[in-house]
Design a protein around this nucleic acid. Structure first.
Lengths: 169, 169
DNA sequence: TCTTCATGTAACATTGTTGATTACATGAAA
DNA sequence: TTTCATGTAATCAACAATGTTACATGAAGA
């Protein structure tokens, strides 16, 4: 199986988008908030766009926004759209010349598939809205604890002020 | 998560060892049967030795053999002994400065842990003996289909004769 | 004791994959 | 027509896993 690198980055960004459905984010902003590079964002999010999870518009004033309501987006959707297959062990090689090898591959493949099914089922049960609901209260509590803020419209605003420049929320 | 590369190689070799409990195999023989390098075998199997799954003796006439009965060795044992953690996404970073990041990490970590539990439970239910039982019949049937054979004692013998040298059973 | 065989490891090379970066074409608004 | 932003290819760098070489250690046999 693979790590969840892309999935966590995408989720991070998507949650920010869910909080501000009113205006589009540029890949520049998204990259800053995820601590990565704009091109990396555009690459990953190309898959999400194809899946209708987000939409993007080019040109002046363009950017990215959610393609449908957060409660209609499951983590399984996102993972699939990222083309991030969980299982890395391929199918058992039917051309394997060794009987032992074939038997081993089959046994492991079956096991992996079950694990993948479990994982997928669980990811399918969590929506972006669920995560946002989990984050929201913490976020507002945090914002309330700040002296003053112009919170909702500037590019990246919801972080402790002294956060290192490359990784701002 | 990670691929099962080491696990399948180890299983492959262990099954061969289970078939011939009477005499030790050299890492040279094991490597040939798994299509890899002796040093790679010794590296991987160091973990198995620490776990008591196999034992090794140095020097003239030395080699490797199973440390206990195949039915006492589960795939979960083997995987653990290989230090091959299934989950690659680490724990959620408790020092993450971003609330969103933390929430995402926690949600994913929980999901991954469940998947890992499922995987482990299933691997723990399969023993080396189970796999051997699955392979055995096919193997004897295959051997029976051969014209003649001196099957059980030479170094590597259970493959179609024309199998490429580097990967012999 | 000396040779031979085999493990135990460290060190290094190779390979494959992922993410970062640069560069440039395309499209849309001002 | 200038500016901003996406879309995408190509290239680089970082990293992990594996393959390989080299050598020390230990055990059996001559």
């Amino acid at each position: 199986m693979k790590r969840f690198g892309r999935l966590s980055v995408a989720l991070h960004v998507l949650l920010h988008m869910a909080e501000q459905p009113d205006h589009a984010l540029t890949s520049e902003q998204m990259a800053r908030c995820a601590g990565t590079h704009p091109v990396v964002i555009r690459r990953s999010f190309a898959g999400l766009r194809e899946a209708g999870i987000v939409s993007s518009v080019k040109g002046h004033g363009g950017g990215w926004r959610l393609g449908r309501a957060p409660k209609e987006i499951t983590l399984a959707d996102i993972q699939a759209a990222l083309h991030e297959s969980v299982v890395t062990l391929g199918q058992p090689d039917p051309a394997a010349s060794c009987l032992v090898e074939r038997a081993v591959d089959e046994a492991l493949a079956g096991t992996m598939q079950e694990a993948e099914r479990v994982l997928h089922a669980r990811l399918a049960r969590i929506t972006l809205a669920d995560l946002a609901a989990k984050v929201g209260p913490q976020m507002t509590a945090y914002l309330a604890s700040l002296p003053s803020s112009s919170a909702s419209s500037s590019s990246s605003s919801t972080l402790p002020p002294k956060g290192k420049p490359p990784h701002a929320l």
